[in-house]
């Protein structure tokens, strides 16, 4: 009798404990969602107020006057584009080696390990590296240096997704093509790349999303430029650094522009993220 009573008490305690634990688990999920919603809501509230045509048509202003973000947007666009054009081909080729020619080799496992580490390595260190190899020898900050810094960040993302996506392509496809007499390079080009195309595009988009918000590696490579400049050999404006500079300034005009820039950049990055996911989804569920 006493024993049964004790068991009931134990059971009740276990259930209570479980309920508390599950409540905490639920609250964590809620906290995560709240954080996301809060940040996005702040961005919309503070950023949308400053969105106007002049943001897209005017240059960054001197303190205390109105202006826009045109030169910064142009700079971000150009530098991200060039960085992607440099980083993506190298990344796809490296991923191809790891999944096709060099599968299971020592080199591949070393490269995979190093690449995974570079994937999360602090981006400011990349900025220092490019400063050492480009800015200092050239004697001045330049948009090229910014492009190179960003391309170093593009590389590991593309390598990773390329290898993963190519490994998802069934070997029977490769074997079928080889059986028809196709040499390896044709198999890779005509079969593997085609089968993994959606994944490769996803990887590239994710890489663009990753670098278009990067600030730290640009701080001392492409620096900033208050004026319109298309000279790749000179400092070039870019949205993240402008946001950084304007947000920390005491001028309300600048701060407003910073919020608007922050909204624009976040929308771009999140849209790229969501878009990349929707492309990738039908493939990944197909396997």
């Amino acid at each position: 009798m006493n024993n049964a009573h004790m068991n009931m008490a134990l059971y009740a305690r276990r259930r209570r404990f479980n309920r508390v634990a599950m409540l905490l688990s639920f609250s964590s999920a809620a906290a995560g969602m709240v954080a996301l919603a809060w940040i996005l809501a702040t961005l919309f509230l503070k950023g949308a107020a400053g969105v106007s045509l002049s943001v897209f048509t005017h240059m960054t202003p001197p303190p205390g006057s109105a202006g826009g973000l045109l030169n910064a947007m142009y700079g971000s666009l150009v530098q991200t584009l060039i960085a992607t054009l440099i980083g993506t081909p190298v990344g796809i080729l490296a991923g191809t080696y790891m999944a096709e020619y060099g599968r299971n080799t020592k080199l591949t496992s070393v490269v995979r390990f190093i690449n995974d580490v570079l994937l999360s390595a602090p981006s400011i260190v990349v900025g220092l590296f490019v400063y050492e190899i480009m800015v200092q020898p050239m004697g001045h900050f330049s948009a090229w240096a910014g492009c190179v810094a960003l391309s170093i960040l593009v590389l590991p993302v593309v390598v990773r997704t390329t290898e993963d996506m190519l490994l998802l392509v069934p070997d029977s496809l490769r074997e079928a093509a080889s059986a028809l007499g196709a040499p390896r390079w044709l198999v890779i080009q005509q079969v593997c790349y085609r089968a993994a195309r959606a994944g490769l595009i996803t990887g590239t988009l994710l890489a663009i999303a990753r670098v278009s918000g990067e600030t730290a590696p640009l701080l001392f490579t492409s620096l900033n430029n208050q004026f319109w400049s298309t000279n790749m050999n000179a400092p070039m404006a870019n949205l993240p650094v402008v946001i950084f500079q304007f947000a920390l300034s005491p001028y309300p005009d600048w701060q407003r522009l910073a919020w608007t820039g922050a909204l624009l950049i976040t929308l771009t990055v999140l849209a790229l993220n969501v878009f990349a996911r929707t492309i990738a989804r039908p493939r990944s569920s197909g396997h």
Binding site: G32, A209, E214, A216, P240, I243, V269, N273
Partner: peptide
């Protein structure tokens, strides 16, 4: 929910900074 949490990783670090400060 998974996507929402993953989007947190997509938000650029500078946005966290400006949100944190203001």
């Amino acid at each position: 929910i998974s996507t929402a949490i993953e989007l947190l990783a997509g938000i650029p670090s500078i946005i966290y900074g400006i949100w944190g400060l203001f």
